[in-house]
């Protein structure tokens, strides 16, 4: 997995609660068997005026100029500022794949849906939970100032603004370490191979019906 240490990037404000994974990446793009290439279709139904289908060249499609991702001042954004319950709905990992492929490395919101939150960490995206009033403040700052940037430092667990002010954030220590070192979850788990085998043996004794041969 790609390491995550610091990001200094333009902030894109998506001022909407309960943004679901169907909105982040619509279902027609889930037919792909690849992990990459979803960026041009992130927020497809909000971003374009026509109906997107896999294989379409997005550079030729009519843009919804009102949508925040299409506004010139937010081009190249790496930090997505969002509202409560971001990423609710389906477990599709295509959602963080699409956001990452678009260029987002950090998402700041007052709350996230569980599965999406978890999927972010597996893909080198840092989701940051801040209090409602802090998120409100960031929304008003980003809207007020073109080119608004934030510096995110995972090691220090700190968000810094261009005015020199800083804000701490919390992150699960295990997930922090995985991101900082770009660790592969599977490799980490397989360090405990013997423990898993030992557990499995005991589990087979306790619940033999779970291991019975099935002939259907």
């Amino acid at each position: 997995m790609e390491q995550f240490k610091q990001v200094d990037g333009i902030v894109v404000p998506l001022d909407r609660a309960n943004v679901d994974t169907d909105a982040i990446i619509p279902k027609q793009f889930l037919k792909s068997i690849q992990r990459s290439g979803f960026g041009p279709n992130a927020f497809d139904e909000w971003r374009y005026l026509d109906q997107g289908e896999p294989g379409m060249a997005c550079s030729d499609r009519p843009l919804n100029r009102d949508f925040v991702l299409n506004q010139p001042r937010y081009q190249g954004g790496e930090i997505l500022l969002a509202r409560e319950n971001f990423g609710c709905g389906s477990s599709r990992e295509h959602a963080p794949w699409a956001l990452k492929d678009y260029g987002f490395r950090v998402i700041i919101a007052p709350s996230f849906a569980d599965i999406f939150f978890n999927n972010c960490f597996k893909n080198g995206i840092l989701p940051i939970v801040l209090e409602d009033k802090m998120v409100d403040r960031l929304f008003s700052e980003v809207v007020a100032k073109e080119g608004y940037r934030l510096q995110i430092d995972l090691e220090q667990q700190q968000i810094a603004g261009s005015d020199g002010g800083t804000l701490p954030f919390s992150v699960d220590p295990f997930r922090k370490q995985c991101l900082l070192e770009g660790l592969d979850d599977i490799g980490l788990t397989l360090r405990h191979l013997d423990e898993i085998r030992g557990f499995e043996q005991q589990h087979r004794k306790n619940c033999p019906w779970l291991f019975a041969e099935v002939t259907v």
Binding site: N119, I186, T189
Partner: peptide, 20 residues
């Protein structure tokens, strides 16, 4: 539990899920 694709791979490889 509903899981993402990275976790699908993790369960395939280790029979375990990392979870709090």
């Amino acid at each position: 539990h509903g899981i993402g694709t990275s976790e699908v791979e993790h369960v395939l490889a280790t029979q375990c899920l990392v979870q709090k």
